[in-house]
Deep mutational scan, measured.
Amino acid sequence: MTEYKLVVVGAGGVGKSALTIQLIQNHFVDEYDPTIEDSYRKQVVIDGETCLLDILDTAGQEEYSAMRDQYMRTGEGFLCVFAINNTKSFEDIHHYREQIKRVKDSEDVPMVLVGNKCDLPSRTVDTKQAQDLARSYGIPFIETSAKTRQGVDDAFYTLVREIRKHKEKMSKDGKKKKKKSKTKCVIM
């Protein structure tokens, strides 16, 4: 069974824990209790493949930012979460993405942009803004509501699919490099 290491990042209060708990335990946590770091595991079937999701729910508070490099190193894919009623959390996505790329030393890291709290009427981040940002990053965008469960499975499952595509691409690139290195030079 394939294991996928997913990391949920975003500013404090955007609903990272609520999304994760909704996926794992099928219930909505409405009281806000700032996370330092929590880890969850769940076995699911995605596109006919049974897999184990190892999900790291991270601290959004700035005082825990020193811990970010460590979990970013171990993560295979990242859910970059903002709240649709919090423009600052949307603007912060850029910083999370840049930090992930720096730590992973790669421009090509599996990510999904997630606009959470889409059940709320007080939207300050337009869907088109988020779609445009995701398009500019070359990553999928999904709106979710941890409260109603809308888009929750889709967000995590899409990230797994992005990781699969990335692994497939990397193995193809690896095979191309191996083929090239088999060419021999004969000096007579």
Rank of each mutant, 00 (worst) to 15 (best):
V45W: 08
I24P: 01
L52H: 13
D57I: 01
V44M: 11
V29K: 02
L53D: 02
D30L: 09
T35A: 00
V44Y: 08
E37L: 15
Q43I: 08
Q25F: 13
D33L: 02
A59F: 01
Q25S: 15
V14Q: 11
E31R: 03
S39F: 05
Y40W: 03
K5T: 07
T50N: 12
E31I: 08
Q43L: 07
T58R: 03
R41Y: 05
D38C: 03
I46H: 10
L23F: 13
T35S: 03
A59I: 03
D30C: 10
P34G: 02
D47T: 08
L19M: 11
E62N: 08
G10R: 03
Y64K: 04
R41D: 04
S17G: 03
A18C: 12
L19H: 10
E62S: 08
Y32R: 03
Y4G: 14
T20L: 07
E31Q: 06
K42S: 10
Y4C: 12
L23S: 13
E63V: 05
I46W: 08
R41H: 08
T58S: 11
Q25L: 15
F28V: 04
D47N: 10
E62H: 07
D54R: 14
E3V: 11
E62Y: 06
E49Y: 08
Y32D: 04
N26K: 15
G13Y: 12
Y40P: 01
E3L: 09
Y40H: 02
Q22L: 04
G10P: 03
I46Y: 12
E63R: 05
T58Y: 02
I46T: 11
E63L: 04
I36M: 05
E31N: 06
I24V: 08
D30H: 09
L56K: 14
T35F: 01
Q43R: 13
T50E: 11
V29G: 05
I21M: 09
D54C: 09
T50A: 12
C51V: 14
A59V: 02
A18W: 03
E37R: 15
A59P: 04
G60T: 03
T20W: 00
A59K: 01
I55A: 08
T58V: 05
L23E: 15
I36D: 00
Y40D: 02
Y64V: 05
V8Y: 01
L19P: 01
E3R: 13
V29E: 07
Q22N: 12
I46L: 10
E49D: 11
D57F: 02
E63W: 03
F28G: 01
S39G: 14
T20E: 04
D33P: 00
K16V: 02
T35N: 01
V29W: 13
G60H: 03
T20R: 02
D33T: 03
V44A: 13
D30V: 09
D38P: 03
L56H: 13
L56W: 08
T2Q: 14
I46F: 12
V9I: 13
Q61K: 10
V8G: 04
D54P: 14
